[in-house]
Design a protein around this nucleic acid. Sequence first.
DNA 1: CTGAAAGCGCTTACAG
DNA 2: CTGAAAGCGCTTACAG
Lengths: 343, 343
Amino acid sequence: MAQVQIKDVAARAGVSSATVSRVLNGDQRVSSARRERVLAAIEELGYQPNRVARSLRRRYTDTIGVVISDIENPHFTQAVRVIEDAAFAKGHRVLLCNTDETPAKQAAYLEMLAAERVVGVILAAADAADPTIGQVIGYGIPVVAFDRQVDDPRADAVTSDNVRAGRDATDYLLGRGHTEIGFIAGRLNIQTGSDRLAGYTEAMTARGLAPRTASGKFRIDEAERATADLLDRFPRTTAIVVGNNLMTVGALRALRGRGIAVPDAVSIVQIDDPFWTELVDPALTSFAQPVRTMAAQAVELLMERIAGERDVARHVVFPFHLEERASCRDLRMRPIDRAPDHD
Amino acid sequence: MAQVQIKDVAARAGVSSATVSRVLNGDQRVSSARRERVLAAIEELGYQPNRVARSLRRRYTDTIGVVISDIENPHFTQAVRVIEDAAFAKGHRVLLCNTDETPAKQAAYLEMLAAERVVGVILAAADAADPTIGQVIGYGIPVVAFDRQVDDPRADAVTSDNVRAGRDATDYLLGRGHTEIGFIAGRLNIQTGSDRLAGYTEAMTARGLAPRTASGKFRIDEAERATADLLDRFPRTTAIVVGNNLMTVGALRALRGRGIAVPDAVSIVQIDDPFWTELVDPALTSFAQPVRTMAAQAVELLMERIAGERDVARHVVFPFHLEERASCRDLRMRPIDRAPDHD
DNA sequence: CTGAAAGCGCTTACAG
DNA sequence: CTGAAAGCGCTTACAG
């Protein structure tokens, strides 16, 4: 209960607190005789340096803040895993915050991280325009935007080419003869949401087709409702692009609820590729992001900033890649239940 | 860059630092005139109190440590979500640590949390016997074991009735005419792993049947291998109980890899019930834990300890419940492809 | 109600 | 190589 402090160790070893501190911090200018005594005393007393005091004195911590918008989304979970691993290996701790896509929570957490004097922040922003981001950077704390760009130009960023993913997913279906293609969008105030929608819209209008969308807000339940809504409005829909992995769960629930077969009646392309995708019936054709690589990149950018090795902001964009599975039907093939055309 | 401190605010407001501190901490004994001036100065200067200094002075933080063993397991993710929410609502921050089921990492993180002087710890232990747990408690920091019991009797605990889940899952299959039942076990040095296995073994031996198990170590890839191994050793297996949700992914991969149909050739019962379960083909019959309720309970126990309201350790155990879906075949029914028996 | 002063437990120039 | 002393930025008895 009464915690052992540096002066207790010093007394036991018969040296000053300064010497104990030097041993603790690997300062070479300590005689080996004294070093041994100090080490022995630390061992005997079970001394644990108080990191709060150390941080106060040094004026910085060794903690990095990671702010994500949805801890229940495997996309972010995978990223956190990589970030935490890399940070731990470099002697950093991770203070993890979950904003639930709520701007107010994001601001509160960023303020906390600033007050905590963390050395850096990795942020999947719920609100790209949040002025708190600028405040954090103003305190000299580097910020790396992950998954989503932020407005402040001083922040580094690691993102995917979301516009392209939306476009490619749509083109994939267009190329297989679909034209009645719907889109289940994420939150439109979030870059991944609006960019993927923009890509879809671009691909549709390039072919002279009218977009047909509904918002699932990156959530399972909302996506289920949105999909039902889309099907009501456009009963002739033959294909749906779903804007992220959680919304796919909702979309599939809606389709099953109505007894609509995938891919026979409606084809599905998913943006994202979580680990359970291939177990679904049918296995889902997906556009996958290299999440782990992206997370590692984010840590790398942050470390460069913390080390003061770089002053100009960098923005790294990763491509998606197609995982072709079984959830899309090719409408150019002869339908099974019709008589063959003569040619 | 040059951060605003309490003395800057004091100077601006024409009061002492003590007064600023009192305003900050809601001390009632400050005249409203001065309070207003202080508040105005804080606003004008954009002052953010340094929490590190505050923590050092107060000798405690408002951070709680959450140590989980696998952040990529939805079971823990759901729990973290609830814990973080509840903690935030009560003015606490969460320092999240991921041990990857590694005892060494657990010890390192617990030491860090102790050095950080967190107010409490929620721990899903990778190593129940870790002496560091006792050290943390010895520092006066309450520990609540989550998901898995720890050896130190001073810790509170919130767990599920894992023995019973293993037994019930096995009995479920026995009741449907299966006898050639295998078990894909988790890590046996972890309580959830050994308890579920114990329940399975109990149910089998009660019927005079020999257990047949393989260890998937709570991991997808290991479970795939383990399942293949089990099928090699026991080709007549008609049913498998899988010890957690991630291992189900591996088990299904192994079965599909060999073209074994579920449930026609082999039935599956899963312990755990993640959100993607019902999308799998076939939807999986599962024994589900009330994870969110358990997480909320863990926070509650921790808060009681932090508030000093309770001295004796409590252990709360939750039951699993059966979600009956489509992954089990009833062998007592007449097989479709055989001629009817005469009776 | 208010302020001067001590102190939280470290680290680090400074002097020797 | 070593120690005495100052100081990190707050909070909180203490005295008034």
